[in-house]
Design a protein around this nucleic acid. Structure first.
Length: 486
RNA sequence: GGCCCCAUCGUCUAGUGGUUAGGACGCUAGGUUUUCAUCCUGGAAGCGGGAGUUCGAUUCUCCCUGGGGUCACCA
């Protein structure tokens, strides 16, 4: 049995697209499940579009999400990039000699040919084809050149490209998700394999690399389906065995078009920056187009690895449901271990949290946030002297005098209590409720002004939670301040 | 436009030749509650259309419609 090897090959565009993440996840799940290898290859054959720092960023993001590759580039602690694996280099720009060798081999076999056409000529050709409603594809004008002419042009140093010579017939793409897709070769263009700058196009590079790197399964986005017959042909021409294909559906904008920037966040970094936790992001993105079971929503990454099945991946594209992501993130945030949660929040607050009040406030506010970046605003009331209108201290069923009286009563009561009732929300609640009951008071009359005095807000956590977070001293201070306002 | 792909609530999805078509987000009506959040209980909301196969189609086939992808010396 062949060792399963999958790869992702993102081009260095500066950020990690959320769709790239999903493809990465599927590749990762599949390889892990089969105890195979998951590799990363850098496709930087387009020198104009390569953005500096992209590789570092990609590796950093994947690392943050817990996805480690078995082979390919590695981001070292000092920020430099090294490589691991026996099939390197894993950066295509360092492999151009290899591609050239294969391109030349194809020419020698008669499966590819030289072209010396100027860009303008090609544009004119296509325009003419469009105007006459013909198929837009290379018309093979270069094939009219004699061997001597070609040799002469090469010797004269004329710039050239090498195109594959698509044979007649039809090509079948076998896809694990979609089944067999048949293409008439007449529809397939004589794709440029080697560009005039000496770099290969994606099509040549991907076939050569996947072959040389023993990739067994190519799991990639659906946008690649139309060019897959080219790849299948190249494998055949080169005498390589083609991998198994699985084209996953696209991630969509709310208007159903291919997910793009300008219609919201598309980069994983953006989501991370907003405080979506990695587990939620992985869970959410992975279950877009794939579902281990119908009536569960929350899955750990290990469960996803175990249950992943390419055959079960949906064929239709999926729109990102932001509200659901928020909900899921909230679920994960609330389930986080308290210390873990605080640690993750510190990044968003920008400081270490050593005060007990802050730590307790975070634990309380947890159920109230969808994203970690909402924390700073929510915890303001615990750290600052919140200004508020004295009028809100008055309970709807009471009046100003009553509010004053209740605060006075609670204050006296709390002063008489030991620190130990502040050990937990429950013990405080029991104590305060006991006080209310013993004195035949109404919850609202006591709790409303108490809560406002502690939070300064009409909407806030319960007074018990606030008391627990603030502690006896701060709580009494705030109650006194409220009484002063009345 | 050519080629290719796709089609279950608004969205993500489960599902079957016979189901009251299930779940989740969101929405909504209540309940719990001092407020908010949580939590609990309900509700509205879906098989795009037309033929065919069949005793019976959401499910299988075909057509239509709709949506999407792709047609570069970009990936």
């Amino acid at each position: 049995m062949k060792r399963i090897r999958t790869r992702i090959a993102p081009s260095p565009t500066g950020y990690v697209h959320i769709g790239t993440l999903r493809t990465a996840l599927f590749n990762y799940f599949f390889s892990r499940q089969h105890d195979g290898d998951f590799l990363i290859r850098i496709e930087d054959t387009d020198r104009e579009r390569t953005v500096d720092g992209s590789i570092e960023n990609l590796l950093d993001v994947l690392h943050q999400l817990g996805l480690e590759n078995d082979e390919g580039p590695v981001l070292e602690k000092d920020g430099s990039i090294t490589e691991k694996g026996d099939y390197g280099p894993y950066v295509q720009s360092e492999r151009i000699e290899i591609y050239k060798e294969y391109a030349l081999k194809l020419v020698a076999q008669g499966d590819a040919y030289y072209c010396f056409d100027a860009k303008e000529e090609l544009d004119a050709m296509r325009e003419a084809q469009r105007a006459t409603k013909q198929r837009v594809k290379y018309d093979r004008r270069a094939l009219k050149l004699s061997d001597e002419e070609v040799r002469a042009k090469l010797e004269a140093g004329e710039p050239y490209v090498i195109r594959m010579k698509v044979p007649e017939g039809e090509t079948v793409v076998e896809d694990l998700i979609r089944g067999n897709i048949t293409f008439n070769n007449e529809e397939v263009d004589d794709q440029i394999l080697l560009k005039s700058d000496g770099y290969p196009t994606y099509h040549l590079a991907v076939v050569v690399d996947d072959s040389l790197m023993n990739i067994t399964h190519v799991i990639r986005g659906e946008e690649w389906v139309p060019s897959t017959p080219k790849h299948v042909m190249l494998y055949k021409m080169l005498g390589f065995e083609a991998p198994v294909y699985a084209h996953v559906p696209l991630l969509l904008n709310p208007d159903k078009t291919k997910l793009s920037k300008r219609q919201g966040d598309v980069s994983v970094e953006d989501y991370l920056k907003k405080g979506y936790v990695k587990e939620a992001l992985v869970n959410f993105v992975a279950t877009l187009g794939f579902n281990p079971s119908g009536d569960r929503e929350i899955f750990t990454i290990d469960e996803l690895i175990d249950s992943f099945k390419l055959e079960k991946v949906n064929k239709a594209g999926a729109v990102l449901n932001k509200e659901k992501l928020d909900w899921m993130n909230n679920q994960y945030i609330r389930a986080l271990d308290a210390e873990d949660f605080i640690e993750r929040v510190e990044v968003f607050i920008g400081t270490r949290l050593d005060s007990e009040i802050m730590r307790r406030s975070l634990i309380i506010e947890r159920s109230r946030i969808d994203r970690l970046d909402q924390v700073p605003e929510l915890i303001e009331i615990y750290s600052a002297d919140i200004d508020y209108d004295a009028a809100i201290l008055v309970w709807k069923k009471g009046d100003s005098a009553d509010a004053m009286m209740q605060l006075e009563g609670v204050k006296t009561f709390l002063e008489g209590q030991g620190e130990n009732i502040f050990d937990s929300v429950e013990s405080i609640e029991a104590a305060v409720k006991g006080y209310i009951a013993e004195n035949n008071l109404q919850n609202g009359n006591v709790l409303w002004p108490l809560r406002i005095s502690l939070s300064g807000r009409e909407h806030s956590p319960s007074p018990f939670e606030l008391l627990w977070a603030l502690g006896k001293d701060e709580a009494l201070k705030r109650i006194e301040r409220a009484m002063g306002k009345l």
